[in-house]
Amino acid sequence: MNKRTEIRLAGEGGQGMILAGIILAEAAAIYDGKQATQTQSYGPEARGGASRAEVVISDDEIDHPEVLSADVVLALSQEAYKKFAKTIHAGGLLIIDADRVEVPADFAGVKVPVARIAQETTGKAITANTVALGLLVGLTGVVSRDAIEKAVTARAPKGTEEMNRKALQAGFEAAEQVKALTV
C-alpha cells in the first residue's frame, strides 16, 4: 500500500481541474500500465467556486477510491488553498499558484506562477491546467513524462496538441527550476 499516491487538484470552477485529474489518471492507467481512480466534486462547485479532482495512483489494485490523506495537493486559487491545504499529510507536497494564492511566511510548499507561465508560453490562460500537470509530474514522477504527454495530446482538442505540448513542457521546466533551487 506504500505504492499508493493520492493527489488532489483544486482550483476555481473553469480552471480545468477535473479534466487535469482525468488526464493524470489516463496517463497512469492507459500509458503507464498502473491502477488509477479519479473522483471529483460536483454541484454548485462545478459552476464556479472551488472545484476539485482526486486521483489515486497505485501499482496494485486500488481499494478505497478517494483521497484519504493527500500526498500531493495542487491549489490554483486562494479558496482551494484554504479548503484543501490542510488535507495534506506531513511530508506531503503542496503546490500553489504563486500569483493567485497568498500564503503565510512559513509556507513550506512549492510556489510557481502557473497561470502566468501558461499565459507567457501559449498566450492562453486556459492552458494553466496543462502547465500544472507538467509541474506536478516533473516534481513527483508519479507518472512518466512520456505517459502524461501522450495523455495530454490525446485529450487536447484538435489543433491544440502543439500548444498543450508546449504548456506541458513549460511545466516540466518549472519543475526543474524548483528542484534546482531546493537542491
Binding site: A29, I30, Q35, A36, T37, Q38, T39, P65, E66
Partner: peptide, 9 residues
Amino acid sequence: EIIGHMREP
C-alpha cells in the same frame, strides 16, 4: 454516486 461517477481503467 461514487461508483457511478468514478473513473477507473
